[in-house]
Amino acid sequence: MSGHSTWPEWVYVGVVIALLCYVGAEAWNIERIVEHVPEDAEIIKVTGQQWLWTFEHEDGTKEIGELHVEKGKAYKFEITSKDVIHSFNIHDYVVLLDAVPGKINTVWFSPTEAGEFDIQCREYCGLIHYNMRGTLIVEDNGA
């Protein structure tokens, strides 16, 4: 408009676009890799309800509020809800997926360290949402 040069703006916008392309490509690639579920993953059914988590292993054992898994194995969660939407979260392992009634969402993970980790709900679900917590117990069976 006014007679000054506009090339600095073009350069700047170009740099921004280049950075965004890099972030986008990298994100696409990583997400593609992490979404690939290993063949041998054991299935754990996760059900959210106001205000606790229940788990069912492949062999039929059930747990409430606590989840026992073995270090080094791969697990695939099949997550759903009995009532309202919750969100199943093991923050230390970047496991986060909504538990939606009438729908089964899947995500997999493989614990790399033995110990206890927090399980929590990350979608608002009412009165005790703040305390809809559980514990992931990773056991090291020398496997």
Binding site: V23, G24, E26, A27, I30, E31, S87, H91, V94, L96
Partner: peptide, 12 residues
């Protein structure tokens, strides 16, 4: 916006 990172930040 970067998909894998959002699973760390979402609803936190």
């Amino acid at each position: 916006s970067a998909m894998p990172l959002d699973f760390i930040t979402h609803d936190s």
